[in-house]
Design a protein around this nucleic acid. Structure first.
Lengths: 345, 345
DNA sequence: CAGTGTATTGGGAGCGCTCCCAAGAAGGGG
DNA sequence: CCCCTTCTTGGGAGCGCTCCCAATACACTG
């Protein structure tokens, strides 16, 4: 039934490798950890023994002796359903996985659903059970980053929390993505471009709004606060905002929506109001999700390089764990977005 | 920069807890592991010490001494993009996470992209670095399950690989889901019900076809092999199959498609052929993905309880790790599906 | 009251590895 | 030819925990 009683599950130990190679345990360890202070002959002997025996280091023993874990945690706030939707979650995971693929690092997935789990996580991290943490979709008021900072636990977040972000972070260029989208609308002759924003406490949503404003000014259009409708990243919120906009500014001819899901809600309202897309109203979303591709008409959307973001987050974290030279500033990466033009604009 | 030199990262050890409680290390260990062979007074003393010191067991030490890891791996074949699409991946992860939430088990995520990574995984598993494995989207000819069986490593798969599945598995009731979908079509007066299948090497796809056939017979309709078009779970494949069907049986008035994504392809072809949905042709998909909800008209679809599947997989695996009494048959769970009726049928 | 159990308890002996010190080997300078 | 460096090397000393055995305490039984 359960595990055998055999030591180390019957796997060869470092000691056995050393014996086989005719060297001491310390030397074998050096070879396996790539220390330069070993002669070539010895190295080869040990490597041969490793190959013959099929030796794989025992991770637990390593962790215990070396006071590290060779594991990082990807912490996902489960209530953040937005994050779980395509394309985010899988793409981030793929990116992180790719970056870790030829590393010894393991990826631990931690879903944090409620406060109890949150406390458990804190305890978990306090107990130093991982070497570093990737934090996605953190809110500006989340205490977790401070805790990590205090513990001296390396950490990278996705999406800066505000303009003066202190943590290493990876973000897409929300400002420029929004700006380009609106510029595109203007270039196609739209004059009354509205926007539906995400929750503005989310810095990225704020940046998209900033980008919208910048493009409107740049185009020489009159800024009009009544063309700006705040929403909450949900489909229902998008619909509500669209209704408001239509009531306030019936003459609008384009809407830049800060997420595809909200755009789906907006599209529904536009359909009910008998506005044709794109003839009467052009629509642009954000995320380039599967919803965008399958919407009718297919939704023009701003694509974020999410997989690449995952990859960069992992790389940053590995650097952070390896130790950053003092004086290096906090690394933060901003990746370019891409406007995917489809039928809705 | 790097980690401090302090032992155990400055955390209290079991020894310290024991000292504080005025008991021996062994006794403290017993309390922490919930052994019944401890007096109440002692238990309380130890628990108090644990609370005061904020003791958290050192996982690595535990793993080393106990020859287990308290971790399970979720192995995801990365090429299987179908799995990465919503709703699968995130829902499975959520379910697994939920089942593990009040367990000491960690969840390790392992993406297997190519053969090299596959070999690495095998080595990894051979080295007993996890207590058990969740395997999703395994192909019938994947060697991994055999390897695990050989190693005596507990394992649960999602989706039986064939009728005589030997591994513990969790599956949705593909047969019944398909049968109910087709029955629904028939009950709405459709007489020429076609189907677009997934890759039939995938057992689940085969079962959906079986369900389709069963419903057709039960309805007293003439079975017609020309109403069955094989595809491959892709949108393009779905479109191709739909074209074939239309060419062969122009009079068809309903299609049961074995996945939403294929249904999206089929819908495109139907639109081009000027068949109205659902007036001329009713359409039903499978998965109840976001695509189904946002399709126009909204797609009727068979929902699988994916999160629940994840939860059950994890539970099964935990049982398996705890040890199954000899004589217990291989547990396998089949969960009911649900037909979500929308506008397309 | 000796004899036999049963319920607790303490702590030794590892688990497989890394860290580090000291010793041996090899090479160079005076 | 001897001494001092530098390069390698072996292996002791843990890392914090679980397993298990032996010891103690106590309660009965006859």
């Amino acid at each position: 039934m359960a595990a055998s009683r055999v030591r180390n599950g019957g796997r060869p130990t470092l000691e056995e490798v050393a014996a086989r190679a005719g060297v001491g345990r310390g030397t074998a360890s050096r070879v396996i950890n790539g220390s330069p202070r070993v002669s070539d002959a010895t190295r080869q002997a040990v490597e041969a023994a490793v190959a013959e025996l099929g030796y794989v280091p025992n991770r637990a023993a390593r962790a215990l002796a070396g006071n590290r874990t060779d594991a990082i945690a990807l912490v996902v706030p489960e209530p953040e359903t937005r994050f779980f939707a395509e394309p985010y979650f899988s793409a981030i995971v793929r990116g992180v996985g790719a970056a870790l693929a030829d590393t010894e690092m393991q990826l631990l997935l931690t879903l944090v659903g409620n406060d109890r789990e949150r406390r458990r996580l804190a305890q978990y991290l306090t107990a130093h059970r991982v070497d570093g943490v990737l934090l996605v979709a953190v809110h500006a008021d989340d205490p977790l980053p401070e805790l990590l900072e205090q513990l001296g636990m390396p950490c990278v977040i996705s999406g800066a929390r505000h303009a003066a972000e202190t943590l290493p972070s990876v973000d897409s260029d929300n400002f420029e993505g929004a700006r380009a989208a609106v510029e595109h609308l203007v270039s196609r002759g739209r004059r009354q471009v509205a926007t539906i924003t995400g929750r503005l406490e989310v810095y990225g949503a704020q940046r998209r709004l900033d980008g919208y404003r910048a493009a409107v000014s740049a185009a020489g259009l009159a800024p009009d606060e009544r063309l700006i409708a705040p929403a909450d990243f949900t489909e229902e919120g998008g619909a509500r905002a669209m209704r408001d906009l239509l009531a306030r500014r019936p003459g609008l001819d384009a809407v830049f929506v800060a997420s595809d899901v909200m755009a789906a809600g907006a599209r529904q309202v536009l359909r009910e109001a008998d506005r044709r897309i794109p003839e009467d109203v052009a629509l642009i979303g954000f995320d380039d999700s599967v919803v965008a591709r399958h919407m009718h008409p297919a939704l023009t959307s701003v694509r974020q390089p999410i997989e690449e973001m995952g990859r960069r987050m992992a790389q940053l974290l590995l650097d952070e764990i390896a130790g950053r030279a003092p004086g290096d500033e906090r690394p933060s990466v901003v990746l370019p977005t891409e406007l995917v033009v489809r039928d809705s604009s």
